[in-house]
Design a protein around this nucleic acid. Structure first.
Length: 550
RNA sequence: GCGCUUGUAGCUCAACGGAUAGAGCAUCUGACUACGGAUCAGAAGGUUAGGGGUUCGAGUCCCUUCAAGCGCACCA
């Protein structure tokens, strides 16, 4: 069958009708390339509704209801459509024919775990960089948000057809590393932590580990390098356990070790945006809207952090990325201008080749008040601790279900003491419930599957609602990928779960008592199987498990 | 001072410029001697921070005021 959803088909049909109305002289205005065709919130408004008549009223010089009528005349008789009506100021509400609406069930069962995947980003190579924490301490709550959202976004982009490289940038160069080494050294020698040094129990634990592994370690450099290796390994282990995978762990230091920086500098120079001033080497980022120009090589000959940013971007592009996505915390929003300018200075289109997502920081409530987080002061809540408290599924789901640009507050006490109130359980429960029903279906030897769809029997309001929701999934995935908003998947999963629960309450799947199994039972069981598949697919995109029993 | 982000139900948060602004939690009232009650049905809860504007139509776009958070280094 066609991979095109019924909604896409309808869209195309409506556009055809409008174009032919134009060539027949019924409409004398431009026909838009795309139109809004959505599922109305109110079920009385049909399966789909379009407001295109309202939009075309003015340019065509007609009353919106007249335009709507033209559209209806053109659509009447279409085999996919059961009924049409004009509503309100000029909305056209469309109710689908049962067979057309039921076709989605076959599509889901045939495509299995690929249902929902699309090709909107086919052939696009995307470099997705997230977390990129300093290797000087454990990952904390801020990183955790990106660990969940970044991973989910990677899955969503892949589902839309993109070739995704997930990358973690390791800031393994500069003063912070030396400070880290000095802090470890001091801890090992029982000396006070240096000025601006790193505090916290983990420093002492790391120091002990280093002394145990390398009794000869004395110098700051030794402590720094051994500590770095241990800390990086710890971060990698925690992320692996969290279900977040990276394809590339990119060392900032490596940009200099193999002279890549000189190469990237040459690119920037040849584009004419590099200049010397006061003994320093600058990039003229103000050519592309940045607030001020940025220093790459300081007057003392050392590299500014910004130098790495330029080389790193160019590295990503030269390694094949069409689009570089950066996921940054809100405390780095001032970087947007300069990063976009780097892309422009490198000769790229800052509107296409680079995309920066700014995520608000997570606040955490415990004991009714906000916990102030500070790595230096040692008051941090780590990714590990959060997982210990609420589990991987709940942690990931909670972090993903909100758009990143909104600040979020996690109430640890609530998550800890009432874990079953978390929406993730609502969704997982729907999946487990369906699995239980299907186990019963199998026990009763009721057949279900692609050959048992029987769309004409699925006429209950709840069944139609469920079919409509299932058909939405591919659009949700494509939209989440396009907008880089994985939270849409979670919201959809919750809506689908809710619709299933309501269907379940109103529509009996199994035969009652000694009632004989009928085609309706098979049809409903098949509908259940399709729903379980879609819930599982949605959870898979979030990296959250879809349990068969809870 | 300049800039970015945010302001929606008691709380946490949704809502491609679309119809009566929605969920969950909390509160109240109900529902299986038949599929998993981690569920369902219902009630209550709102001047979408305030004020202007754009248009067929604004929580959404523009201007402005207020409030909160965060940035404005030859630090990383």
């Amino acid at each position: 069958m066609s991979a095109q959803s019924i909604q896409d088909q309808l869209s195309a049909t409506i556009l055809e009708v409008l174009h032919s109305a134009k060539s027949n002289g019924l409409l004398n205005c431009e026909i838009p390339a795309a139109l809004t065709l959505e599922r109305p919130k109110n079920r009385d408004h049909g399966d789909y509704a379009t407001s295109v008549a309202l939009a075309l009223a003015k340019p065509s010089g007609k009353n919106p209801r007249e335009v709507a009528q033209i559209l209806i005349d053109g659509l009447t008789g279409n085999k996919d459509i059961e009924s049409l009506e004009i509503a309100g100021p000029g909305f056209v509400n469309i109710t689908l024919a049962k067979a057309s609406q039921g076709a989605v069930v076959s599509a889901i069962l045939q495509q299995g775990n690929k249902y929902g995947h699309g090709n909107s980003l086919n052939g696009v190579a995307i470099n997705l960089e997230f977390i990129s924490a300093n290797p000087t301490g454990p990952l904390h709550l801020g990183h955790t948000r990106w660990a969940a959202v970044g991973d989910a976004l990677g899955r969503v982009l892949s589902a839309a057809g993109a070739r995704v490289t997930r990358e973690f940038y390791i800031n393994d160069r500069g003063n912070q590393m030396d400070l880290f080494g000095a802090s470890l050294q001091a801890a090992a020698l029982g000396q006070p932590t240096p000025e601006n040094g790193y505090h916290g129990d983990y420093i002492h634990d790391l120091a002990k580990q280093i002394v145990a592994d390398h009794p000869q370690a004395k110098s700051l450099e030794e402590f720094r390098d051994y500590g770095y290796a241990l800390q990086l390994k710890q971060q990698q282990g925690v992320l692996e356990n969290f279900g977040t995978h990276f394809d590339v762990w990119f060392s900032e230091k490596s940009l200099y070790d193999n002279n890549f920086f000189d190469h990237s500098m040459a690119t920037l120079k040849s584009n004419g945006h590099v200049f010397e001033l006061d003994g320093a080497t600058w990039l003229r980022t103000t050519d592309y809207g940045d607030d001020k120009d940025r220093v790459m090589i300081k007057s003392d000959g050392s590299f500014a952090y910004f130098a790495s940013d330029t080389a790193y971007y160019i590295s990503k592009r030269e390694r094949g990325a069409d689009i570089c996505i950066y996921m940054l915390g809100a405390d780095h929003h001032g970087y947007v201008g300069r990063l976009k300018a780097i892309a422009a200075c490198a000769g790229d289109d800052p509107e296409y080749n680079i995309h920066i997502l700014i995520g608000q920081l997570v606040k955490i409530m415990e004991g009714g008040e906000e916990v102030k987080l500070s790595k230096r002061a040692g008051t941090i809540i780590t990714l590990e601790e959060l997982v210990e408290k609420v589990g991987v599924d709940a942690a990931r789901y909670t972090l993903i279900r909100y758009p990143v640009e909104t600040p979020m507050i996690m109430d640890v006490d609530l998550l800890r003491s009432h874990t079953n109130e978390n929406p993730v359980y609502y969704v997982q429960y729907a999946h487990a419930r369906i699995c239980a029903v299907l186990r019963n279906v199998a026990d009763l030897k009721i057949s279900y599957g692609v050959d048992q769809v029987h769309p004409e029997l699925l006429e209950h309001e709840r069944e139609r609602e469920l079919l409509g929701a299932l058909a939405e999934f591919p659009r949700i995935v494509a939209g989440a990928a396009e907008m880089r908003e994985p939270h849409r998947i979670a919201r959809y999963a919750e809506e689908l779960a809710g619709i299933y629960h309501r269907f379940y309450a109103d529509c009996r799947v199994l035969p009652l008592g000694d009632e004989k199994p009928s085609e309706l039972h098979s049809a409903r069981a098949t509908l259940c199987a399709a729903t379980a598949q879609v819930i599982a697919n949605a959870l898979e995109l979030l990296g959250v498990s879809a349990p068969e029993k809870m």
